[in-house]
């Protein structure tokens, strides 16, 4: 028996590579590619929920988004985020999320799936480690925009800061305005 046959017998070739966003292991027939494997919420995009974040703390805002998703809201509008840090992080769900205002540092990190629109500006390290989804930012972004993203589309209509897309493994970053010098060269 040849070495190759032995390896088949030992079951070393049964592993299936899978992944929805990063590379080409995409197969339209696989159910898994169209469902969210995590503990995702069943949401209806036509059902809209909104709240004012003016007097809420960061964790209260994030929990509020989560509880609206639990109620089945597929379209959430957050008013007056007022540049607070770490808002909209860890959303592993299909969701339309609108921020009416600006976000601070580390906004919308670790997301997988949502379609986000931000009418203001974002601080540094926005969308860090994003896996999938789309984000459109109307104004400027800070440094390390889209750090370590692995998939999805990140669009900033204004200027971005230094080190945009540092450690980026996949996905797309589109910038409408100016960018830091090292991207010029």
């Amino acid at each position: 028996m040849g070495t190759v046959d032995k390896s088949f017998e030992a079951g070393l070739h049964t592993e299936q590579l899978r992944g929805r966003t990063q590379q080409t292991f995409f197969s339209a027939t696989e159910e898994e590619n169209f469902t969210y494997p995590y503990n995702a919420f069943e949401v209806d995009r036509a059902k809209k929920g909104e709240f004012d974040a003016q007097d809420l703390e960061t964790s209260e805002i994030n929990l509020k988004i989560r509880s609206l998703m639990e109620e089945g809201c597929g379209h959430i509008v957050v008013k007056n985020p007022r540049a607070k840090h770490s808002i909209g992080v860890g959303i592993l769900n299909r969701l339309t999320l609108d921020f009416e205002g600006s976000l601070g540092y580390f906004g919308c990190g670790l997301i997988d799936g949502p379609n986000i629109h931000i009418s203001g500006r974002v601080g540094w390290s926005f969308g860090e480690n994003m896996m999938a989804g789309t984000v459109v930012i109307e104004k400027n972004a800070g440094s390390t925009f889209g750090a370590a993203i692995r998939g999805g589309d990140l669009v900033c209509k204004g200027d971005v800061g230094s080190r945009t897309g540092i450690d980026m493994k996949g996905g797309t970053i589109i910038v409408g305005g100016r960018q830091a010098r090292f991207l010029d060269s």
């Binding site: 007022r82 540049a83 607070k84 600006s102 601070g104 500006r121 104004k139 400027n140």
Partner: peptide, 22 residues
Amino acid sequence: SEEVSIRKIFDHDIDTFDPYEG
């Protein structure tokens, strides 16, 4: 250092930006 700080002294919406390296 952070935008939250600037927003403390403005009621209305404002445009801000980051300076670049060097």
